[in-house]
């Protein structure tokens, strides 16, 4: 049997196109040996949830710099849950003030990384918290 791979989706929900962070993260995950599904800018939460399921990812990383994270991030979690995919872990990053962290955690976002988070820290978080799904 070959080695199981961690599959991660990097997505930008909402209308902002500031994708520098998302694209760097996609490359960094690839270099860490993960399989990364990158879907580009301007994705709706519905597109993101559907894609996460079609691609059977272990983790969805959301990046938002417009301030709309308070609606968009929880909405993705909610949609995954509705479609019976709440085992897919959702994390987020972007321009997110400390004040919003708890609300997002309560909504099911498992971790939040703001600008300046070392890539190494994010990769380590993934290795510690995400195990590639075992079988059926």
């Amino acid at each position: 049997m070959t080695e199981k791979k961690i599959r991660i989706m990097v997505a930008k929900p909402g209308l902002d196109g500031h994708d520098r962070g998302a694209r760097i993260l996609a490359r960094c995950f690839r270099d860490a040996g993960f399989e990364v599904i990158y879907t580009g800018c301007h994705q709706t939460p519905e597109q993101i949830a559907a894609t996460a399921i079609q691609e059977d990812v272990d983790l969805v990383g959301l990046s938002c710099l417009s301030g709309a994270h308070r609606y968009l991030f929880p909405r993705v979690v909610e949609l995954l849950k509705e479609q019976g995919a709440d085992d897919i872990v959702v994390i987020g990053g972007g321009i997110i003030p400390d004040q919003d962290f708890q609300t997002l955690y309560d909504a099911g976002i498992k971790a939040i990384f703001t600008p300046g988070s070392p890539l190494d820290t994010i990769v380590r978080w993934v290795r510690t918290n995400i195990r590639p799904r075992v079988n059926l």
Partner: peptide, 23 residues
Amino acid sequence: FDFPTLMGYDSDSPKARGECGRC
């Protein structure tokens, strides 16, 4: 301007949800 305005959507568009007046 906020993102819906920047992208040419009105505040009542489904694509604008959560973005209105944010940035």
